[in-house]
Design a protein around this nucleic acid. Structure first.
Lengths: 239, 239
DNA sequence: CGTTAATTTGAGACCATTCAATTTCGGTGG
DNA sequence: CCACCGAAATTGAATGGTCTCAAATTAACG
């Protein structure tokens, strides 16, 4: 069997989204792909592009983003390892936003046709893909609420809660973890300025809710952070 | 054939999203459903609910919404006629947001099982549903950009552009149309206060970009409105 | 150990909010 | 047809959260 363990984490994740049998898992593991490495800020996908292949993030972070005429940038969602960059491209064709690598990342490039065949042949995987996309949508919906209605403190606290829980759901330690997101990126994700993001982070540190130093985030007081963020993880559809 | 023309507009809309043959269209038209009427502000779906049926908006508007602990409300998207309230519920089970009727609306309640069978049996309809959901996601992504990075004038202008174009794509006149959205709802959709929404609308009227009176919106200067909004309709995936 | 990126600090300006009151609109009943 | 009512829209003035524009400091990296 010419299996490749790079896709094993994806199989594991999709198993939590739909009931997969042995053949389903096998079909994932034998998907054809090639690996590619992207540097910090490199584009994985550009608005207007019509990719013939889909990209699966193997390691590192990435983010969906749109640029404004005036040069402003709004980050729309973060992508964690084993999430798809453009599962949607197969149907809509043209990309309507950009995806950039957040730090150095590793990606599996999979022919679109292989994924389409998978979806056609395997109802369970179809369900998993559907659930995958729906959760992604639910997260973006919560982001509208976050940037639309919460003040800077709650907004940043909420984003940190979300990332922590998503990492925990993915099997990483959610209380202390690598946090390669710069304050400028955090600002672009929350709709704030870098300056104000900085002051807000300082406040969260002063109040001993978090500890954030040299690319590592530690959550010191979960209860208070959730409280400050008005965070309810129902929308992540995991627990 | 016990067809019911209430579902014909849905068949027409889905035809623009995927290649549907005669049988596909027939399958849509013969879906079982019952009609229901909802008053202004009535809930079509509540967070935490696990509906056994899906609701399709036949006439009137609705909106997706989330409430905050402090009583604030953020509108996440508007639903136009012939859009589904909860096509996602079938997979995720629990609703993560609320849907309210914007004005008096009419809804087709369809058993979830019927939709699942449709998707299982008909690849083309599956594709249409997938595209449907993906466009919905794209709209919500643009909303993150809207509330995150645009000032009040651009924000409201953008929302008006989007609604006009979505209505035009649905076959309605996009230059002048019924606009039952109150300023309070507009405020909740843009993350602004009703007071500031009012002042911003007045500015758009003063500059003769729009005419908004007694539930009717007329776009007087498309070029200037698009300009003010930084509006690019690519994300609606229609033209 | 030099160089660039990232974070931090300060002060003033501004966009949007808050709070409260008033006016207009749409629908209803006398 | 007019009087009434609640909802929606409008106005004013003061407050405040976030932004802007620099400049300084610290961290990351080859």
């Amino acid at each position: 069997m010419s299996e490749n363990l790079h896709l094993a984490p994806l199989a594991r994740r999709w198993s939590t989204l739909a009931r997969l049998n042995h053949d389903d898992r096998e079909a994932i593991l034998t998907l054809p792909f090639r690996r590619e490495v992207f540097a910090k800020d490199a584009y994985l996908l550009r608005e207007g592009q019509q990719p013939a292949e889909s990209a699966l993030l193997l390691s590192g972070f990435a983010y969906r983003q749109k640029l404004l005429r005036d040069g402003g940038r709004q980050i729309i969602n973060f992508l964690l390892p084993n999430e798809f960059v453009d599962l949607q491209a197969a149907v809509l064709g043209t990309a309507d936003h950009n995806v950039q690598s957040l730090n150095r990342s590793e990606v599996a490039i999979i022919p679109r046709s292989a994924l389409l065949e998978l979806a056609d042949a395997r109802p369970n995987l179809r369900t998993a893909m559907w659930a995958d996309k729906l959760i992604d949508s639910a997260i973006v919906r919560e982001w509208v609420v976050n940037v639309g209605r919460r003040d800077s403190r709650a907004r940043i606290a909420h984003l940190l809660c979300e990332i922590a829980v998503r990492l925990r759901n993915a099997g990483t330690n959610g209380d202390m973890f690598d946090f390669p997101i710069t304050q400028e990126q955090l600002a672009d994700a929350t709709g704030l300025t870098p300056v104000h993001t900085n002051r807000t982070l300082q406040a969260l540190r002063r109040d001993e809710l978090i500890q954030l130093t040299s690319g590592s985030l530690k959550i010191l007081n979960w209860k208070a952070l959730r409280e400050a963020a008005d965070f309810d993880e129902l929308y992540l559809h995991q627990s």
